[in-house]
């Protein structure tokens, strides 16, 4: 890590906050532009958002509205073109690649629309992947994953390859992978878009449940009204700008 101070000297499940009154995630006046050859695409324009710890929040909007960009920025996969993205004490824009990799490894869990399980690994191995990267010994890895599989209702599928699992099962394995390292934040990009409505609802209930019991902050993107309807807080985006931020008592 070339001598850089670790940004967050915290234990798993502990708060990412250094000050209890500060929001966990802050995006302030963020701009993001991508270059596609000679074409410049603006993904986010003057976007500001604060998310507190333990929130279950959805980014809603049509495709291309900038939802994924927000997730990528919060997940440390990308840096803002202008403005600031802070998660806990970590300033994403100025962090080195190694710090960001470690941040993703220990603090963030990802869930993707197309599951993105590694096809050559079994379900359990996929779920263990981040723990392996962290250097957690194998028996401990197995123990945690077995617990998670029971909690997620996919026990008995540990040795299956992703190709032999249904979409819902694959996404549960992906959730197990995202949660295995006990991150403070789980980012899910259209997690239910590839699932039928029944499975999608089951999965949402599961995530809502995890959010309540574990206090893990969930940040979603979706254009699916069923998903949006289940969130306490909905942030609406259009053309890279925030057009609404509503909280309901649910």
């Amino acid at each position: 890590m070339r001598g850089e101070a670790l940004y967050l000297p915290l234990s798993p499940y502990a708060s990412l906050l250094t000050d209890a009154n500060m929001p966990l995630i802050t995006l302030s006046n963020v701009y993001k532009t991508y270059r596609h050859g000679s074409l410049e695409v603006t993904a986010l324009t003057d976007f500001s958002l604060e998310i507190a710890e333990g929130e279950f929040i959805v980014l809603a909007g049509p495709s291309g509205s900038g939802k994924t960009t927000v997730l990528n920025l919060v997940g440390g996969l990308d840096r803002p073109s202008a403005g600031a993205v802070t998660v806990g004490a970590l300033e994403i824009a100025s962090a080195s690649a190694a710090v960001l990799a470690d941040y993703r490894l220990r603090r963030v869990g990802f869930i993707f629309q197309s599951y993105n399980l590694i096809p050559v690994l079994t379900a359990a191995e996929n779920a263990e992947f981040t723990l392996m990267l962290q250097g957690v010994p194998r028996p401990e890895r197995r123990r945690r994953v077995t617990e998670l599989f029971i909690e997620l209702g996919i026990e008995g599928l540990e040795e299956r390859r992703p190709g032999d699992l249904s979409g819902g099962q694959q996404q549960r394995v992906a959730i197990a992978r995202a949660l295995a390292a006990a991150p403070g934040v789980v980012l899910a990009d259209e997690p239910t878009a590839n699932l039928d409505s029944h499975t999608a609802e089951e999965l949402l209930d599961l995530m809502r449940d995890l959010n309540r019991r574990r206090g893990v902050t969930f940040l979603f993107s979706s254009h699916d009204d069923r998903v949006i309807g289940r969130a306490r807080r909905v942030v609406r985006l259009e053309d890279g700008r925030m057009v609404g931020d509503s909280t309901t008592n649910r």
Binding site: A97, A101, Y103, I118
Partner: peptide, 16 residues
């Protein structure tokens, strides 16, 4: 590429 992108997103370092 996609798989490697996921592995990176999960927190693997480029060195790995």
């Amino acid at each position: 590429l996609r798989e490697f992108g996921v592995v990176l997103a999960l927190g693997s370092s480029p060195g790995r």
